[in-house]
Design a protein around this nucleic acid. Structure first.
Length: 563
RNA sequence: AGCCAGUUCGUUCAAUGGUAGGACCUCAGACUUUGAUUCUGAUAAUGGGGGUUCGACUCCCUCACUGGCUGCCA
């Protein structure tokens, strides 16, 4: 686990824990848990919770469990269990031997329910789902009591046992807690504890046909694991009285539930339901599509665990709803990659350049620095020859005032190579498109410095045409055009804000030859372009890169401002 | 309409009765063989109204606004 806990800023949850430690509320123990439901892939919002829970445990010398909240067999799958374990591990956290499942506790949950029935605090209800809804009342009107509410204990016991045995069809009965149908908090209006579901569970198979509800299962699972601080998101605030009710009635170990605001990120979605929809309807290529804020998507995109942890630390923990700007996440990955990613030259949209006064057939190996931020990363050789490629956007036949890259008659530097001057522009006769540049080089500027001290305003990246490798590069942009995708006020659903240009695939990119054996997952900075990582779609002959994030681009900003 | 929570720079997190601060964003400048990085600087906030107090972002009242809650989902 990363040890950056010492300078970690404090938040209201840590304040509560510090106080509990001082008053010895839990014998000095701190024990948290991360309790995902295995019904989807983890996303950056989960990362916030993971960093919080594991981070707290680390900071206070406690423990953090990984517990799958698998009480709904109709939605949960092993595929999700495996992906979640992988993602938590990848993020850098370790649950040791404490991998649990709510389904481990089904028998205890059943026995505690029997106990509540015996106490007269729970009853079997024969109302249908529709009737329960009707009896529940509304936000402003109190509910009505179920006709079965005062069923004798013996009858409840018998019925509940038969529910377990499978005597009744799905939905025909439920076990309910007997609390208060008039409560202003609807969660307290005799909530369902168990429902009948003849469904195959990914772990218990067909052993059970009744399954506990979240509110009932979660507090008891926490109690069984002797969790001290049960941290969850704000929408469970209304459920806390119920969490406390079950534990109080059962008189068992009582963790305290603390709620914090979930993460919202601009230009994306965090809802599992919507994520699933994008995947299933093919708006993205899968759960690990690099445009998605899923952990697997971010991983494929090229994000590092370190950068995500850092991000989670910077956004902080609070109780008010907020929307973090995607720019902060991007800042975090640039910060990390700037220090660690080797630099390399890649031309995304090639423009052919012929150096007229460079000997045909001659090749020089020029030395390039792998990372100016880290001399320890050394240098490499890149081949230079008569025919090169430069970036199309680095040349303008008619340059605007602030454009100081290559133009007819102008001299610029090719990084680590020579000064070159544009002496000719060759166009396609039919389309007028510039297809080749003729340049001359100054042999005295080898390496990129001119002995006479004359300056050039621009340094361009380049590759040697014959030595460079062809590559596919996938350029990603925000998945949504609107920062707040939840804002559906103007009638549209969130998909109306989908960015039609969130993926642009470039097929004839040229990268320097040193990349020939680059392994999937390797991250590079393409100089002057951004950070890119090798996609698993790469095969022997064909490299595929994902653009993780662009470099900050002042020139792009200037151009945009002019429009 | 009922219950619960919340409201501080554009964004986000602090300030726990005593000088409203950090980060991101934005802007300007310096440096630069990446229009990158780095460095320097700037802009910029306590929802409204009462009250308590020598003193209120902080405590109280009230209004407004925002979010959550009427699954046999979690």
């Amino acid at each position: 686990m990363p040890d950056n806990s010492s300078q970690r800023p404090s938040d209201f949850i840590q304040e509560i824990i510090k106080e509990d430690l001082e008053t010895n509320k839990y014998e000095g123990r701190v024990h948290t848990r991360f309790p995902p439901e295995p019904n989807g892939y983890l996303h950056i919002g989960h990362a916030k919770s993971i960093c919080l829970n594991f981070g707290i445990a680390k900071k206070f010398n406690g423990l953090c469990n990984l517990r799958f909240d698998d009480t709904n067999p109709t939605k949960e799958e092993v595929e999700y269990v495996e992906s979640i374990k992988k993602d938590v591990r990848w993020l850098g956290f370790d649950w040791g031997d404490r991998l649990f499942y709510a389904s481990d506790y089904f028998e205890q949950l059943y026995q505690h329910a029997v106990q509540l029935i015996k106490m007269g605090k729970a009853y079997v209800c024969d109302l249908s789902a529709d009737e329960i809804r009707e009896y529940r009342g509304t936000l402003t009107e109190p509910g009505k009591e179920s006709p079965n509410r005062n069923r004798p204990v013996e009858e409840n016991l018998d019925l509940f046992e038969r529910m377990r045995r499978g005597d009744f069809p799905d939905g025909s009965r439920t076990l309910r807690a007997k609390i208060d149908m008039k409560s202003g908090n609807i969660n307290m209006r005799d909530p369902v504890m168990f429902r009948i579901l003849h469904a195959e569970h990914h772990r218990t198979g067909d052993k059970w046909c009744i399954y506990p509800m979240y509110d009932y299962a979660h507090c008891i699972s926490d109690s069984i694991e002797r969790i001290t601080h049960s941290v969850c998101t704000l929408e469970f605030e209304d459920h806390r009285p119920l969490y406390d009710w079950f534990l109080n009635e059962l008189n068992v170990f009582h963790p305290q539930q603390i709620e914090f605001a979930r993460l919202n990120l601009s230009h994306t979605i965090m809802s599992k339901r919507k994520l699933l929809q994008l995947v299933q309807e093919g708006h993205v290529k899968g759960w690990d599509d690099p445009r998605l804020p899923t952990i697997s998507g971010l991983r494929r995109r090229g994000y590092t665990p370190e950068s995500i942890r850092n991000f989670c630390e910077r956004i902080g923990i609070a109780k008010r709803d907020s929307m973090v700007d995607m720019a902060l996440l991007e800042y975090c990955i640039r910060e990390d990659l700037n220090k660690h990613a080797p630099r390399v030259m890649a031309v995304l949209r090639p423009l052919r350049v012929v150096i007229d006064n460079y000997h045909e057939g001659q090749v020089e190996e020029l030395e390039a620095i792998n990372n100016p931020e880290d001399a320890g990363m050394g240098t490499r050789k890149v081949p230079f020859s008569r025919v090169l490629y430069i970036e199309r956007e680095d040349f303008r036949e008619d340059p605007p005032k602030q454009f100081f890259r290559l133009a007819p008659g102008r001299e610029v530097r090719l990084r680590y190579a020579y000064y070159i001057t544009c002496v000719g522009v060759i166009k396609d006769e039919k389309t007028g498109e510039v297809i080749e540049l003729r340049c001359t080089y100054d042999p005295a500027t080898r390496g990129g410095d001119s002995p006479d001290g004359r300056k050039v305003k621009a340094t361009l990246h380049w590759v040697s045409a014959s030595h460079s490798l062809e590559a596919e590069v996938r350029m990603y942009d925000h998945l949504f055009t609107k920062a707040d995708t939840e804002d559906e006020k103007d009638g549209g659903d969130f998909k109306a804000y989908l960015n039609q240009n969130s993926l642009e695939t470039l097929n004839s990119c040229r990268v320097e030859p040193g990349l020939t054996n680059a392994k999937p997952g390797t991250r590079y900075q393409f100089e002057r372009q951004g950070y890119f990582s090798v996609d698993p779609d790469s095969s022997n002959g064909k490299l595929v890169f994902n653009r993780t994030v662009t470099l900050k681009d002042t020139w792009a900003k200037i151009e945009k401002a002019k429009k």
